[in-house]
């Protein structure tokens, strides 16, 4: 059961928004790395996204040619993978963002519907 003051979001909602959100964050703040994307998602209020959920999503975006990556030496620790958006990634983000906004607007319309008796 959901509570209105619950600080976490249902997993299905996070999963639906994660790929597009990650792409948007890399486009806005890249070149960056996975841990930074996870922190920004949390700071934006999307909740804690575990590495086990985030990295396969970043991997899929890379497979689609929307992100590119290279390995950079780490400061004292192991090296890390730096990801940045490709030109195709930026174009795709514009399209997907527009489609997402249409989708959320449609969902908002549905959610705004009230029983007819309430309107009388």
């Amino acid at each position: 059961m959901l509570a209105t003051d619950d600080p976490t979001w249902p997993t299905t909602w996070t999963r639906a928004a994660l790929e597009l959100s990650a792409l948007a964050l890399v486009c806005a703040h890249g070149p960056t790395h996975g841990y930074d994307v996870a922190k920004r998602l949390q700071a934006a209020g999307l909740g804690e996204v575990k590495g086990g959920t985030l990295y396969p999503v970043l991997g899929r975006l890379e497979d689609q040619g929307l992100l590119a990556s290279h390995w950079a030496p780490g400061d004292g620790g192991p090296g890390r993978k730096v990801v940045s958006a490709t030109d195709e990634g930026r174009r795709e983000l514009a399209v997907r963002r527009a489609r997402w906004q249409q989708w959320t607007a449609a969902v908002a319309d549905v959610l705004a519907a009230r029983p007819e008796e309430e309107d009388r």
Partner: peptide, 23 residues
């Protein structure tokens, strides 16, 4: 190799044990 190195780098930055971060 990439998946293992990525997990290790994430864990080094977040300080989380791998099982906790990656399940």
């Amino acid at each position: 190799g990439e998946i293992l190195a990525e997990a290790e780098a994430h864990s080094a930055q977040s300080g989380e044990p791998l099982r906790e971060a990656f399940g």
